[in-house]
Design a protein around this nucleic acid. Structure first.
Lengths: 336, 336
DNA sequence: CTGAAAGCGCTAACAT
DNA sequence: ATGTTAGCGCTTTCAG
């Protein structure tokens, strides 16, 4: 049987309340008492029972991170950043993957496993504005990534539209005029794909380049494989192009591979830029230009907001919407 | 306030024990009673309080996965496999990263955060045989990866030595005779690095190729960056070589990048094979031959063993040692 | 500044 | 087949 507060209290010759006070850094304790209690804790190797604490206080010190897919390097790196930010605040992280679309997301969000956690970091993939009411509950939650407009929860995101505008403009500034966009979700408005397509179009308009729908390549799932396949299909159409904005790095890398197999030189024939600044982009051939979304900043901001909601559960402060900075990273794939 | 067993019991007109029985699939319940209770549960939207259950039963339904680093694609893919295997068994997974070496591993292993979980999946990085006694406790645990000989815990691993032997032999069978090994940990015997170097040497011996220590390239941390830097340093030495066995894919990809920058053609000048079969190997240029360690099989086996230990905490069955299958995957980097 | 006692929601003996 | 009851270990009023 494990050591309890009672054991410590008995050894230290105080009541369990005093021990509890010491553990929870309650301010008004005589130094001598604190010493005694700490000595007893050390001697017994006491560790608080987190289930009991959680039952009584309603706080477990665990948060959930809901992401589509860890195999996607962007989410692995984001998860890493979130876990480091969470640990710095004394929180543990349960990761849940939900590659199964809207139904699965809702299921997990409502499932019994969310009982255990104090709050949720939710990287929205499938839910849209019409589902915002599903989130209108008391659970502390911060949304990451896509934007649910006017949702009831705090939201941290990169500047999708601005980022895509900057990426596209970067290629245009190199003199490219037939810039393809890889990763569109036809009809989507509020998700990353929709916002990035919007930025792409803005950049074209600003440079006076006419929008050509045949340069927009839809890809539903943003994996390397899907980028490769979409590019393969696009090449068979013979649409001329000299630039490529991929809406994430994984797709860009898959597409680069296919283009080079087809004899296209990068950046000479096609200049390429991606999105996310995953580690791999530094070592691909050629190395990949990209938009760095400041994952660490996203993670830290999100954990801070969540912690605030956890600590002030009945503050009815309105949902906040924060956007992090981004940076263009120019590498070989868009070298001059 | 949340809905409790009492609320359900009151609505259904039964005692809380009956409700509890229904929830826990206790066999002897009259169908009519079960119906009533289930109706009440649905009507109220009752969800069990996992903290209370955990406090009372000593089981939380959460396991911990301890890995060095999620940014390493191998571990991200392993974590994905583990989470899918765990979810299939109704378990949640808390991931803890421990990039900080032996001290941090021991700290986390003993820390208060391990209180909450029913068991631990521990991908040993820094701990060696001399630390086995630190694991000699009652916590259900399955070790992944490196081998701690004669340790007190179950252990699931790939066949490190056999895999490296097969990888090396694969290059030798292509006629290469100056095969370098990337990723050695000088002096190590029981870790992946030591075992794989052993396999490398066995393969050379079997083919009658003399072992040349100048072809063994030490790399402490197995990231892409480290592989690239080690290869850059190796090239400046001018040691002739025509094959490369990298002890993981990340290092192989970093090294390939450096070799190609230096004008070496792959596989013509240097044939390359890695380890892990991470997703990226299919899309690198050239695509990378590798050893597939069957991550899904590792994950499922490990979760099964752990669950068994959790469900039979006082079975003092001796620690088991399971090795999964591996497969050579030949791609362009070692094409004939 | 410290102690006593109640009770969080659940499971598991035990009783019926 | 179902009800009663006693805690799991902790935090938290409330007293002193």
């Amino acid at each position: 049987m494990a050591i309890t507060l009672h054991d410590v209290a008995r050894l230290a010759g105080v009541s369990i309340k005093t021990v509890s006070n010491v553990i929870n850094d309650y301010p008004h304790i005589r130094p001598a008492t604190r010493k005694k209690v700490e000595a007893a804790i050390d001697e017994l190797g006491y560790q608080p029972n987190l289930s009991a604490r959680s039952l009584r206080s309603g706080r477990s010190g665990v948060i959930s991170l809901l992401i589509p897919d860890l195999r996607n390097a962007y989410f692995a790196e984001l998860a890493d950043a979130v876990m480091r930010a969470a640990r710095a605040k004394g929180l543990s992280v349960i990761i849940e993957q939900m590659p199964g679309g809207k139904k699965e997301e809702l299921e997990i969000l409502r499932g019994p496993r969310m009982q255990l956690v104090d709050g949720i970091l939710y990287s929205v993939l499938a839910l849209g504005e019409e589902d915002a009411h599903h989130l209108d509950n008391a659970m502390p939650m911060v949304l990451l990534g896509d934007r649910i407009f006017n949702g009831p929860k705090d939201h941290v995101t990169m500047q999708n539209t601005e980022g895509a505008r900057a990426a596209t403009d970067h290629l245009l500034s190199l003199g490219r005029r037939r810039v393809a966009a890889l990763g569109a979700h036809p009809g989507e408005v509020v998700g990353s794909a929709g916002l990035r397509l919007d930025g792409y179009q803005q950049a074209l308009a600003e440079r006076g380049v006419e929008y050509d729908a045949s340069l927009v390549i839809p890809v539903i799932s943003w994996h390397r494989k899907d980028g490769a396949e979409a590019m393969r299909a696009f090449l068979t159409k013979g649409v001329p192009f000299d630039g490529l904005v991929a809406f994430n790095d994984s797709m860009a890398l898959g597409a680069m591979r296919v283009m080079q197999e087809a004899g296209l030189r990068i950046p000479d024939d096609v200049a390429v830029i991606g999105f996310d600044d995953i580690d791999e982009t530094r070592y691909s051939i050629p190395s990949l230009s990209t938009i760095d979304p400041s994952k660490d900043q996203i993670a830290e901001t999100a954990v801070d907001l969540l912690l605030e909601r956890i600590e002030h559960p009945d503050s009815h402060a309105p949902a906040r919407d924060l956007a992090t900075e981004f940076h263009i990273v120019q590498r070989e794939s868009s070298a001059i």
